[in-house]
Design a protein around this nucleic acid. Structure first.
Lengths: 336, 336
DNA sequence: TTGTAGGCGTTATCAC
DNA sequence: GTGATAACGCCTACAA
């Protein structure tokens, strides 16, 4: 079905090794005339090199593996886009290994990638962040970077400083004069969530403001749960004037809940969240939020990994800046 | 770095062919004792089969290629998730080839996938829907399915009936009594957009209601452009009472524009859009929208393709149902 | 400038 | 039950 080097060679009337040289650009040592004949033959036969055979003998595939959780997570999808863009720029292919959801039968971590002999691995599956098995794989000798904690360390972690994300939100609200806070957070099992919360909390602490545990409601990243969490929170703590939400998607639910409860935002209650998705400027009120540089993180992770693969010392920093984007969902607390 | 069959064989004190049988489960013709020795040796050496070598000799890779545009498009990300889930269930790997954005240097269509000798291709890159080159590849002999038009036909197309999407929206609004319509559509270069518009329009036609060209504004799928388009539209046609928007993301912008213009939704103007993203129930007002079954489309496309690969006649239909989800963004037109 | 030999890790076929 | 031999398509010396 596919033409091979030999087929091309036969048609061009040369040996297949000569064709190989032409195809790989390796041989400047081919006369112009034969080169042309070969190129013509290859075109006529629709020759497409066989990456399998190539990888087998070269012992390198120019392919990078990415282990990820489901791409229906906005951050991960965007991260993968960035990583792939960068890989493409550096002439590498990319193999995405989406982990089966928890509960279903999972193959060994990154098994597919290893079988395909990728040149390096990007771990972008937070669901594995406490998983010893994954750590073993990532420390197994292949170049690797991660965007989340890996037990035992030893793997470069790329990303933004999550504690800053929480801190920026807190500082902004404190500066406006708020003293009664609540938080709608992601699943506590995730380190990002705990780190963000810690950053938020320590900023409050320093200002001498308390954040009681009862004012923190756990949620699961969806708008739906953000809505439910916010309603529960305000039932418990009607005195709140400021809300920190751990994602724009959940904040969409939070805004809806506040609306349905008859609380005006920001007049009665301020909201600041995380992510800065493209639509968050078009919620009403427009959302004040802390940018999480998903795509840049993907590019950066890939760049560092490719440096590692090439045995070059990566020069890029592993920490990307976050930034508060001020819009209209925050104001001074009501005079009351 | 990786242990090979031969390494395992040496350690187990057998020939490598025997190991192969054990690894592939192929050989019931191996004694229990040697099998155990081999399994133990493989484990100790951390043996991982080499998919490259395997694919080379088997002439089959159990890998399906997906050509897609950037995954920052919600639909495509969700589609890929569905396709990968189904592939995993059927023990196939998946290679995602994200097309470089228009303008930048593009490799030949699906080139990477062909080089990796995938067993089949899913074309999920609408940016190539009028591209002759892509059609040639897809008709090149490999099993293939597409989720968009392919010049020359011959490739099964999986998806929902886009004209129904438009028609459902129109019927709903007509039934409520609306007579003055506007539309914020996606890029006209896309067939989905033209087909949706056609469905919308023909429903209006049948009701004897006109949709002047000036009441149709083209947009680019973003909230930002949805916002701008809606403002432009209402400046031109302040008499509109009903708006059809081609995506929930753009509708987010449209709702914001209406809000900023002081038009109440749905009291002054009704809005119906397409997609039914998870957050659209948490906009205020909650969005009435037509479900586009992205993930199911992915599963279906993969299922059909894998049937094709296995030379079985696919039994699944290529057309998935769409459905109007009624929420609160539509009402009767104002009495005026 | 071109061609020859050897091997990459597997699987398949067929003896033993 | 087990092992020898021959591919699969390609690349890297090295010889002609």
């Amino acid at each position: 079905m596919y033409a091979s080097l030999k087929d091309v060679a036969r048609r061009a009337g040369v040996s297949f090794q000569t064709v190989s040289k032409v195809v790989n650009g390796t041989g400047a040592t081919v006369s112009e005339r034969t080169r042309e004949r070969i190129v013509a033959a290859a075109r006529e036969l629709g020759y497409v090199p066989n990456a399998l055979a190539r990888g087998l003998v070269r012992r390198t595939t120019y392919t990078i593996g990415i282990v990820t959780d489901s791409l229906d997570d906005w951050f991960l999808a965007e991260f993968v886009v960035g990583a792939q863009d960068e890989a493409r720029r550096r002439h590498h292919d990319t193999l995405v290994d989406t982990r089966a959801p928890a509960g279903s039968a999972r193959r060994a971590y990154a098994r597919t990638l290893l079988e395909h002999r990728v040149d390096g691995i990007i771990a972008a599956a937070p669901s594995a962040e406490d998983d010893e098995e994954s750590a073993a794989v990532l420390r197994g000798g292949l170049p690797a970077v991660a965007i989340h904690h890996v037990p035992g360390g030893d793997v470069p972690v790329v990303g933004s400083r999550h504690s800053s994300t929480g801190r920026l939100a807190a500082d902004h609200l404190l500066a406006l004069g708020h003293r009664r806070f609540g938080a709608v957070i992601g699943p506590r099992t995730r380190r990002v969530v705990r780190t963000r919360l810690r950053g938020f909390r320590s900023a409050l602490d320093e200002a001498g403001v308390a954040l009681p545990d009862s004012a923190i409601v756990e949620s699961d990243w969806t708008s739906e749960s953000g809505y439910a969490a916010t309603r529960a929170l305000l039932r418990r703590h009607p005195e709140l004037t400021a809300l920190h939400v751990h994602s724009d998607v959940m904040a969409t639910g939070a805004l809806a809940a506040l609306h349905d409860l008859g609380r005006r935002v920001p007049a009665d209650c301020s909201v600041v969240s995380c992510d800065n998705l493209a639509f968050s400027a078009y919620l009403r009120p427009p959302l004040t939020t802390v940018t999480v540089p998903a795509r840049e993180t993907g590019e950066r992770a890939m760049r560092i990994l490719l440096d590692l693969v090439a045995r070059a010392r990566p020069t890029d920093a592993t920490l990307l800046p976050v930034e508060l984007v001020v819009r209209q969902s925050c104001a001074h607390p009501p005079a009351a």
